[in-house]
């Protein structure tokens, strides 16, 4: 039944392709993506997609719900808050680097900086803030940066993602690069991100249940039981690349930032739910 639906959806998309000319806008892409997943999972409310695999499987969801009373990232968020509020050696704090003093702004990241001509992720902004204030940068994938990012995300709980791709040639290129990355097959196993997260969400791959593209970055940073700690989105990207035997790119490389830009744009309108837990 589900399989039949998936095939129908796939055919629907295949038929739709010639009508939408190459170079469709980000907003056209997003709407089509939402439509695609609605058809694939007609019983799942659209805001639920931010819960990844838990939106798709009742048993997993129950296990997960029982964890929410004492989430394992609580301590890291508290620690992140302290770090966020502790002044640098020069007396300034992180708040001085962000709009609204850094509170309730997660939903606007990443954004495209039209002066620097690059995608600015929240973690990049955190480290740039440190460097501008004479502090050494933090490691990108875990530890303090994940705690600070988790605290900042926690102040945005429930706010809808509002990623903008400005009418700017470089911004469009960054978005298109991210999209190309997501759909390009990589690694010895010859899989694209989409092979798993567009074509096969809701299916099991060994012990893992595949999540859909939609909502994917909304729960980051994430506490994985496999990691036993919080990790950033780019840590997850690296893991997914590695799983198909593709050489991961450095965290916060231009490629991964553009990928995050595309992926987060697809989740526009969905709520921030990070930090969260995953297996």
């Amino acid at each position: 039944m589900l399989k039949a639906k998936v095939i129908l959806v796939a055919i629907g998309v295949a038929l739709a392709v010639p009508q939408v000319q190459a170079g469709s806008t980000p907003e056209e892409d997003r709407k089509e993506t939402v439509e695609y997943f609605k058809q694939m999972f007609p019983d799942v409310a659209i805001e639920e997609f931010v819960n990844g695999q838990y939106a798709l499987d009742e048993d997993r969801r129950k296990q997960w719900a029982s964890m929410q009373d004492f989430p394992p990232y609580e301590f890291a968020v508290a620690e992140g808050k302290v770090m966020f509020e502790t002044p640098f050696a020069n007396g300034k704090t992180y708040a001085s680097c962000f709009a609204n003093n850094g509170i309730g702004i997660r939903q606007n990241y990443p954004y495209f900086d039209t002066v620097k001509n690059e995608v600015i992720t929240l973690e990049l902004a955190i480290n740039r803030c440190r460097e501008a204030n004479g502090e050494p940068p933090l490691g990108w994938k875990k530890g303090p940066i994940a705690s600070i990012s988790a605290y900042m995300a926690s102040t945005s709980q429930g706010k809808p993602f509002d990623i903008k791709v400005p009418d700017d040639a470089e911004a469009q290129v960054a978005y298109q690069d991210g999209k190309e990355f997501y759909y390009s097959r990589r690694g010895q196993l010859n899989f694209s991100c989409a092979s798993c997260h567009v074509q096969n969400p809701g299916k099991w791959i060994r012990a893992d249940l595949l999540s859909p593209t939609l909502g994917q970055p909304a729960n980051f940073p994430v506490h994985r039981s496999k990691w036993g700690e919080l990790g950033t989105l780019h840590r997850r990207f690296a893991g997914c690349n590695n799983n198909v035997r593709a050489e991961p790119l450095p965290a916060q490389s231009e490629e991964y930032r553009n990928l995050e830009y595309f992926l987060t744009y697809m989740s526009n309108g969905l709520p921030v739910v990070g930090p969260a837990t995953r297996p």
Binding site: V13, V17, V20, Q21, A22, G23, S24, E28, D29, R30, E32, T33, Y36, K179, E180, Y182, Y183, S184, R185, R186, Q188, N190, S192, A194, V198
Partner: peptide, 24 residues
């Protein structure tokens, strides 16, 4: 040999990704 396959993959994907992308 593996590197040659990965180069072939890169070249192929330059166009092939569009055929599977939502929104083309």
């Amino acid at each position: 040999e593996l590197a040659e396959e990965s180069v072939a993959q890169r070249k192929k994907q330059q166009e092939a990704w569009r055929n599977v992308a939502i929104g083309n």
